[in-house]
């Protein structure tokens, strides 16, 4: 009996629609997050992550409704991230049926927010999302810095120290995205993942850069991640969740 490594497809949504294209051949509406989430669940995804990039405040209600619709159809864990700023935002998402919320910028602005959230709702539902970029030169020891706003704004915070601090504040899981790799299809930043996974006691989700199935394997064996998150390789039908699991199982990784 061994805990399985998790595969987590990620849906980026704006105003209730999936915005990074999804190209299942036999799906009615490729932009409907409920239909897509249900599809991934039926394929054997271990969790679903829903990232809301809706900018406007008015759009929040749409997001809450979408989360409620997904939660009514999908009986696997659902994480919701994007625009989580207040305890009320967290309560709204949990009441709508989310199991976890991912906190990113708001944690950087106010690290105590993570502590308050964990105290209020329990660490098990508080994921801290970290966007990190390598800032060390070729000859220097590895160093990564936290960036916000999609990698545009440096914060001066060291990524490994920040992850440790977030766990001390009550984060139950870390969702780590390499801003250098995101969208490149070159694979995870394995050194970054390993550095943080070995520094914290809670599970780590690797994100950013997956282009093929070997990248998923590397994230776990070399990046020491507990779960791997990917968007485009699944959305564009390059690989299905069962194919990913079969490949990983063939590399002696325990999957569901």
């Amino acid at each position: 009996m061994t805990l399985a490594k998790r595969i987590i497809p990620c849906l980026d949504c704006e105003n209730g629609r999936v915005v990074k294209g999804v190209q299942f051949v036999d799906i009615r509406d490729a932009g409907d997050p409920v239909e897509i989430a249900k599809r991934y669940c039926d394929q054997g995804a271990d969790e679903i992550t829903f990232l809301d990039i809706t900018a406007s405040h008015e759009g929040r209600q749409t997001t809450i409704d979408t989360v409620r619709d997904i939660a009514g159809q999908v009986f696997i864990p659902l994480t919701v991230g994007g625009g989580i700023r207040t305890l009320q935002d967290i309560r709204d998402m949990l009441n709508a049926g989310a199991d976890k919320v991912a906190i990113n910028t708001s944690a950087v602005k106010n690290p105590d927010f993570v502590r308050e959230a964990a105290d209020k709702f329990g660490s098990q539902c508080i994921v801290v999302a970290i966007d990190a970029k390598k800032v060390s030169g070729e000859e220097e020891p590895d160093k990564w810095e936290i960036f916000t706003h999609g990698g545009r704004n440096p914060t001066g915070l060291d990524a490994v120290e920040w992850a440790k601090k977030m766990v001390a504040n009550g984060a139950g899981e870390i969702l780590l995205t390499s801003m250098d790799r995101d969208g490149t299809k070159d694979g995870f930043d394995l050194a970054l993942n390993r550095a943080i996974s070995e520094a914290v006691s809670v599970p780590l989700i690797a994100s950013g850069g997956v282009g093929n199935l070997q990248h998923l394997v590397d994230g776990i064996t070399e990046g020491k991640a507990d779960a791997v998150l990917a968007a485009s390789i699944f959305h564009f039908g390059e690989y299905s969740i069962p194919e990913a699991k079969e490949y990983m199982a063939g590399k002696r990784i325990v999957v569901r």
């Binding site: 009996m1 809670v202 779960a227």
Partner: peptide
Amino acid sequence: QRLKVPHMGWNE
């Protein structure tokens, strides 16, 4: 490999 706490995910 280090086993993380919480025990989170799918187990038999």
